[in-house]
Amino acid sequence: MTQPSILLDGLPVPFVDGQTIMDAAMAADIFIPHLCHHPEFKPQGSCKLCTVKANGRYVSACTLPARDGMEVENNSPDLNDKRRTLLQMLFVEGNHFCPSCEKSGNCMLQALAYELEMLSPHFDQFYPNRAVDASHPEVLLDFNRCILCELCVRASRDVDRKSVFSLSGRGIDKHLIVNAESGRLADTDFSWADKAAHVCPVGVILKKRSGFAVPIGKRRYDVEPIGMQVERLAARSADEES
């Protein structure tokens, strides 16, 4: 019996039962843009960057199980256009001032904006007023950059078994909270050793006193565009960014 496969932008890509379109693409070293997906965690399909067209329907590649013979459109002007608009939405929703961010150069949001040639935020900025939480001795939380991917939520709940992070509010008021009546990270059992400390794709969860260690030009996405780093993205469980 031959292995089942999908046709990804015309290319046959094999998969095993239970794999999603994203899993199959990653295993074949094909890049599908994504932010909330992480190979180690249960897919959640909220950022919608991985929107592809499967048999003519727009779907999330990270949540839709692959089916034999499925025709999937990924790298097309229409989809990249939509993904760029989604990025622009994320950029105006928060306060993303890359020049002053420690994560710059290692940030997935920024790297995807480069990959998809996003030159401006396009929409009017929301400039939300979000206070930072510097209470914890090891870690700074800068909520201005949160894209609500819930990776820290999932890591803390499913791996660390601490549930330090959660989301509250609704709609555009949705926001990240921590597991303390005071609302301060220092009053939780969070530690830099937690998995959740190392999964933020943007610059929200930052180790104190260690920023800007790598010079410009040597940072992860200075070296190579994110679209060329599929193998590393797929192997993220072992090699986590700090």
Binding site: F91, N95, F97, S100, Q125, N129
Partner: peptide, 15 residues
């Protein structure tokens, strides 16, 4: 440049 594109450093006074 960043300031023309998204307000940049001066826009940090917006809150």
């Amino acid at each position: 440049g960043a300031c023309a594109v998204n307000g940049g450093l001066p826009a940090q006074r917006n809150h």
